[in-house]
Design a protein around this nucleic acid. Structure first.
Lengths: 191, 191
DNA sequence: TATCTTTGTAAGTAATTACTTACAAACTTT
DNA sequence: AAAGTTTGTAAGTAATTACTTACAAAGATA
């Protein structure tokens, strides 16, 4: 499906994106990052669009696998914590993918890329929904707002946290500050 | 300070940004949108960077003025509602500025642009802080989490709402869906 | 009325972009 | 060992980029 080289290239692409924005993601820069020439990039991808799409699809399925692999816990609060610990662990180890996953900046007039971005969001929601829902049913989380509204709050807070992490140059420990955010959300949504 | 033509140009720039992303914001497209030639753009701005910076600075001071002009109300809940009604009203009338205000996509390796973006965030926080803080002191809002954490939750939810509005092509009425988000946040943070 | 300033056009510039083509070295397979 | 395949290089391409320059028309000022 996806070769080792392709993985290396999309990792380099994420790195460029995160550090220099979309305008920094050029084939020239990508080749330099990979330490070979531009032509070689086209041995592995037929276009720049394909690189971005492959990156987004990889991140979506990677996230889906990771979160599917989480052991089922009966306590919804613990389930929520483990879900975000897993997410934060991934971004802590792969900070260069932050932009690709969260950036509105990749949203251009390109239909394919836009729907690939929305797929990532929906994967996240897919795993978040049952945790929140069961928490509400068990009387652990508030039912003052709907499941969707709760998810909206959580994802919004998480995204903003990642935005700030990047804006501040990845200086803070995202595992610590990210969990603080989740903890404060938890305090608020607990029934 | 800023001429009428300059305002027209930054409005056109926002329009291009929102519809076609950063790569759609070219001098050529900008000139076409203004219905004159590329050279004429340079009669009003000395560089593309200056256009973006002027746009961001305009948005920051515009927001600052708007929110400063709000009548002081004693009820924090009402204050919060009026603040966001004002914000939603602005974006409803100027949807093409959504990207400029919220997009991480403008964040590039350009230092000046990055700090202009962060200025917008800080203007918003400046006006949100006293409302939340007084609400907590008056016992109207929860003190289970800090003022900063509350603001983080609110801004995160609001940003995500704007992101979705754009992703769905500005189809829904942002005044309605935006206020729903604020209402659900309010339910949660009320003491 | 004559001159100056402002704001536009037309046609360029060099640099950068994504992508291609002809060729060669190194593995793999036979 | 011979042949085929994979993966790289070197040197291009046409298109697009931000920006410039020489010129002209219109309005304001003298």
């Amino acid at each position: 499906m996806i070769t080792t080289r392709q993985k290396e290239i999309i990792a380099a692409a994420g790195k460029l994106l995160t550090h220099s924005g979309l305008s920094g993601l050029t084939i020239k820069n990508l080749a330099a990052e990979m330490k070979f020439t531009e032509g070689a990039i086209y041995r592995h991808f037929k276009s720049k669009e394909e690189i971005i799409l492959t990156m987004l699809e990889y991140l979506a399925s990677n996230m889906d696998e990771r979160l599917s692999g989480l052991a089922k816990v009966s306590d919804p609060e613990q389930g929520l914590i483990e879900l975000f610990e897993n997410q934060l662990n991934f971004f802590s180890q792969h900070p260069h993918f932050v932009v690709a996953v969260f950036s509105d900046g990749l949203m251009e007039s390109n239909e394919k890329i836009n729907s690939a971005i929305l797929r990532i969001v929906s994967v996240k929601m897919k795993h978040l929904f049952p945790v929140i829902f069961s928490g509400q049913q068990k009387g652990k989380f508030t039912t003052a707002i709907t499941t969707e509204e709760t998810i909206h709050l959580i994802i919004g807070a998480f995204r903003l946290q990642m935005f700030r992490w990047r804006a501040l140059g990845f200086r803070e420990d995202i595992k610590v500050s990210g969990m603080k955010t989740i903890q404060s959300v938890l305090k608020i949504i607990k029934a």
